[in-house]
Every structure is written in structure tokens, then in C-alpha cells.
């Protein structure tokens, strides 16, 4: 489902960002290519989620610019590790929550509802539109969260380990579905899984060090979602090695 407006590239510049007395980022620059998925890998605690929150504007201290020169406000959607569905609303109402929170008018809401129903069908939840979140399985809830992210119809989508809490099979299916539905949007996906990054990313960046910086972009061949073929798995092994600190700069060699 392509976005209503063409997705711009995004560039992020962090002069200095400290948290709890530690300088997490200094002189950090991150470019998200337009209409492509960038996957951000990195060891725990390196600041992946913080960086995502800086891009989202949830934290102050970063200069964010869009390649089309227009402001980023109202052009970003967010998907987190937990589904963040509101338990007192039905699944369908959860998809529309952004419109309610912005105080959308009747016509806009009706259009959004149409869209929400189509997307629910698309993620296989058409029958569960009237269910409450606690009546769904974890995989279904995360599918609903994906649909909610898409109902917002924003050209830039930020995802913070959106599939990490799911079982392997559900995760695999949802990765394919997300890659398909997010096509044409500028996506930043934070993950701790090298395989997920390699399957879904047009570009894979590894965030390392203190202060942390993203490494050079790694561009696996083919278009996402890629199948977990031997070449990809070999790359995964090297990425894992690099993340565990076991190899000398293997990423440039891999790229």
C-alpha cells in the first residue's frame, strides 16, 4: 500500500547527546534514504532506541531534516516492541486512535475507517475488528499494531524492535507482511537480529562505540523481504561476529 505522498529521505544530525552522565552520541549523522528501509543494528545499550526516539522527535537534541525541505511534523508513524493497543478500545477503534487524538472531523474519520477496515483485511484480522486486544494472540496484536501504523498513512515509519517478542514463525510471517505493506515508505527499523535486518533492510547500519556512531551502510543484494538463503545466512554470521566484537572490521569486507 503506497503512501499518499512520496516519501522523503531523512537526515539526522546530533551534535551531542548525553544521558545519565554518559555522552551517547557526538557528531552523529544518519541518513535515511527516501522510500527505502534502513535497519539499525547494535549491541544492547548502545543507544539504538534513543536514536530512534531522536528521529521521532520524542527526545530533543537532534536536527532533523527531510530531503524535500518540508517539516517532519505529522509525517512520522511509530511502531514499538509492544503493540501499545489500548485495552479499552476494540481493534478497529485502536486503528483509528491517531485520528481521535488529533480531533479529526467526521469526514476524515469516515475515510480513515474505510482504510482501517481494508488494512485489517490485509493483515488477516477483518473478523476480529470488534474484538478487544486481550482477546487476541501476541502475533495478532502485533499485526493490528502494524495496521494501525499504516492507517496513519505517513511517509516515514519508525519501528523499534517490532517483532522481537514474537515466536520465530509468527515473526517470519510478519516480517514479510511488513516489508510488503511498508514498500514506498522511508523506514527506520531498529532490531537486535542481524537476520531480520538483512531480510528487511535496503541498508543495514551497525551502531557501535561510545559515543556511538553508525558504521558504513551494508547493502545486501536483492529486494526485501529477502529469503534466508545461504549467502544471507553467511552474512548474518559475520554480522553476529562483528556485534559480539569477535572479528576485525568484517563489515566493509562483507559489503
Amino acid at each position: 500500500m503506497p503512501p499518499a505522498e512520496p516519501a522523503p529521505g531523512v537526515s539526522l544530525l546530533v551534535e551531542r547527546f548525553a544521558f545519565a552522565g554518559r555522552t551517547l552520541f557526538e557528531g552523529l549523522r544518519l541518513e535515511l534514504p527516501a522510500a527505502k528501509t534502513t535497519c539499525l543494528l547494535g549491541p544492547s545499550g548502545v543507544g539504538k532506541s534513543t536514536l530512534l526516539r531522536l528521529v521521532a522527535g520524542l527526545l530533543p537534541g537532534a536536527v532533523r531534516t527531510a530531503s524535500d525541505g518540508r517539516p517532519l511534523e505529522r509525517r512520522i508513524a511509530w511502531m514499538a516492541q509492544s503493540d501499545l493497543l489500548l485495552p479499552w478500545l476494540t481493534v478497529e477503534e485502536n486503528l483509528l486512535v491517531g485520528f481521535r487524538l488529533r480531533g479529526a472531523g467526521r469526514a476524515e474519520l469516515a475515510a480513515a475507517r474505510e482504510r482501517a477496515r481494508a488494512l485489517l483485511a490485509r493483515v488477516g484480522l477483518a473478523e476480529r475488528a470488534a474484538a478487544r486486544p486481550h482477546e487476541l494472540s501476541g502475533g495478532m496484536r502485533q499485526r493490528a499494531a502494524l495496521a494501525r501504523t499504516l492507517v496513519e498513512d505517513r511517509p516515514i515509519v519508525l519501528m523499534d524492535e517490532p517483532f522481537s517478542a514474537l515466536d520465530a514463525i509468527t515473526r517470519h510471517r510478519l516480517q514479510d507482511l511488513a516489508a510488503e505493506l511498508l514498500r514506498g515508505r522511508t523506514v527506520l527499523l531498529v532490531t537486535h537480529s542481524p537476520l531480520e535486518a538483512l531480510r528487511l533492510g535496503h541498508e543495514v547500519r551497525v551502531l557501535e562505540g561510545l559515543p556511538a556512531r553508525p558504521g558504513p551502510p551494508l547493502r545486501p543484494l536483492g529486494t526485501p523481504p529477502r529469503a534466508a538463503e545461504p549467502a544471507l545466512l553467511a552474512l548474518e554470521a559475520r554480522l553476529l561476529d562483528a556485534l559480539a566484537g569477535g572479528a576485525e572490521r568484517p563489515l566493509e569486507a562483507a559489503a
Partner: peptide, 19 residues
């Protein structure tokens, strides 16, 4: 997480309180 989501959705403060 709910508050973050609401903020990214550009929710109005009053709507965050009520909804």
C-alpha cells in the same frame, strides 16, 4: 509507550488526557 505513541501521532494534550 502509550504517551510516546500519542505524541508521535501529534495528539492534542487534552485528547491525551481524555482518551
Amino acid at each position: 509507550g502509550w504517551l510516546d505513541l500519542a505524541r508521535v501521532m501529534d495528539a492534542r494534550p487534552a485528547a491525551i488526557l481524555w482518551r
